[in-house]
Amino acid sequence: MTLDPSFIWTAFVQILPAIPTTLYITIVSMFFGLLIGTAVVLIRIYKVPVLHPLAAGYVTLIRGTPMLTHLLLIYFGLPMLIDSLAESFGWSFRSVSIPMIGFAYISFSITAGAYMSEVVRSGIIAVDRGQLEAAHSVGMTTFQALRRIVLPQAFAASLPNLSNGVIGMLHGSTLAFTVSVVDINAQAQIVASSNWKFFEAYLAAAVIFWGLTVLVERLTALIEKRINLYNRGGVT
């Protein structure tokens, strides 16, 4: 068997339509992951009663199990839960109306939430305590101080880790093929299976992933540049 360079291009073109699926999964999961992560870290920092041990348990449990396991547990467990609830409450909603990609959104958001909570925490730790005190001293509530002063700076400080997270999720989203979502990787497999040129197809997929990753890196650099406008007192 020899390499068929022209099929790499053919595969490349045929895989392109799957890019939005991969991007949707990445963006949606990271967005909700960041929200969940921020909520979790605030619950843990402020030791909110009842929720605090739950949040700690969530982080250790999710970080302690593979992303693929989360997906499979959600995929098989959630329909059972929803259908039994629907039956006992008499809802007309049934789990079959959830699109496949929905399971990927839900499970990957849960995965990302646990990892992002640590990323956000590192960012919050990096913000000087004096910033919060200054916000309090001008009369802000803790919520206002967090939203306007602490979190923006924490976000800036955790940007390198965040970009790592986005790239990790971009690549991790390939797992969605296990629940029949056609992402870049799954599309490559489909393209290849018509003529058994797997190497060429996966090579094309690799190039696309790399391109997307470079895009994320560029975007990060752009945001970082903007942040460094105020941060130039730092070590970099």
Binding site: V138, I149, A156
Partner: peptide, 14 residues
């Protein structure tokens, strides 16, 4: 009340 801090504590991103 308002406070002026030893370490200034200006909002760094503003």
């Amino acid at each position: 009340t308002a406070m002026v801090f030893q370490q200034y504590n200006l909002f760094r991103h503003k």
